[in-house]
Amino acid sequence: MRPGRISLAALVALGLLSVPAQAETIQVTVDKLEFAPVDVNAKVGDTIEWVNKDAFAHTATATNGDWNVTLAPKQTGRLVPNKPGTTDYFCKFHPNMKGRVIVTQ
């Protein structure tokens, strides 16, 4: 009999503690000035990872100003969205590079 474990299970059963789904890492490849995939779907708490394969610096910059991820040459940048919504983004250095992040709860 381990009271600690029982009370934890009870709290979960009562809905007082939520057990979050495993957070995932979703990759976007940046190659030859293109974001792929263009649309990325994620849940709140997931990690979006931009893998910059170019020898050029890029950014992933939300058009609404909510976030800005710097993508140095051959480096990876990350974002953990904290609220649901659809956000268009672009590269500040090359505004012809565009993508969209769709976050659900």
């Binding site: 030859k32 000035l33 293109e34 050029f56 590269c91 500040k92 250095f93 090359h94 505004p95 012809n96 590079m97």
Partner: peptide, 16 residues
């Protein structure tokens, strides 16, 4: 072709 995309990006950046 990569150079063209870079130059097009710079053009838009410059317009901004």
């Amino acid at each position: 072709q990569t150079g063209l995309k870079i130059f097009q990006g710079h053009q838009q950046h410059a317009e901004h």
